[in-house]
Amino acid sequence: MNVLFLTLVEIDSVEDRGIYQDLLRKFRNEGHNVTIVTPVERRKGISTNYKVKDGVSILQVKTLNIQKAHIIEKGIGTLAIEYQYLLAIKKYASDKKFDLVLYSTPPITFAKVISYIKKRDHAYSYLLLKDIFPQNAVDIGMLKEKGFLHRQFLNKEKKLYQISDTIGCMSPANAEFILRHNPEINSQKVEVNPNTIEPIEINYTDEEKKSIRQQYQIPIDKRVLVYGGNLGKPQGVDFLLETIAGTKNENAFFLIVGNGTEFPKIKQWFETNNPPNAKLLQSLPKEDYDKLLASSDIGLIFLDENFLIPNFPSRLLSYLEMQKPVITATDPNTDIGDIVEKNGCGLKVLAGDIHAMNKAVDTLVSENLKTFQENCISLLHNEYLVDKSYQLIIKRIL
Rank of each mutant, 00 (worst) to 15 (best):
L6S: 07
I11A: 06
D165K: 10
V56D: 03
Q214C: 02
L308A: 01
F98K: 06
E82P: 00
K267Q: 15
D95I: 01
T261L: 11
L385Y: 11
V190S: 04
H150N: 15
N29K: 06
V138G: 05
L347Y: 12
N249C: 03
A351M: 07
V361N: 03
S13M: 11
K130H: 13
S104N: 10
F27I: 05
E198K: 13
V101T: 09
G77C: 12
V14Q: 06
L303E: 15
K118A: 00
E374G: 10
S283E: 09
K112H: 01
P134I: 04
G337A: 13
L8V: 08
D165E: 13
S314M: 12
G344N: 04
L87M: 06
P276S: 15
R223N: 04
W269V: 03
P39T: 08
P234Y: 00
I46W: 01
T371S: 08
P275W: 09
V365I: 07
F312P: 00
F133K: 00
T166W: 00
T330A: 13
G55H: 04
D95Q: 10
K26G: 00
N311W: 07
G246K: 06
K62N: 09
G258T: 10
F372C: 06
A69P: 00
N249I: 05
Q215F: 05
I66S: 06
Y161Q: 03
A173S: 15
L179D: 02
N333K: 04
Q373R: 15
D206T: 09
L385G: 07
A294T: 12
I71Q: 11
A123F: 08
D54Y: 05
L160M: 15
Q373T: 03
A360K: 01
Y216D: 13
L160H: 04
D12R: 11
D304N: 15
S283G: 08
A252Y: 03
K286C: 07
D288F: 00
I114N: 01
P310A: 11
T38W: 06
H181P: 01
L127A: 06
T63R: 00
A175K: 14
Y83L: 05
E208K: 13
T371C: 01
L179V: 11
Q214H: 03
D95C: 03
F312C: 04
Q235H: 15
V365K: 01
L320W: 04
T35S: 15
P219M: 08
V340F: 08
K291E: 09
A93C: 15
Q84S: 12
R17L: 12
S57N: 10
S389C: 05
R151Q: 14
Q323D: 09
K62R: 14
V113P: 00
A329G: 08
N333M: 02
Q235K: 11
L320G: 10
F307A: 03
L4M: 13
V349R: 03
P275C: 05
N382W: 00
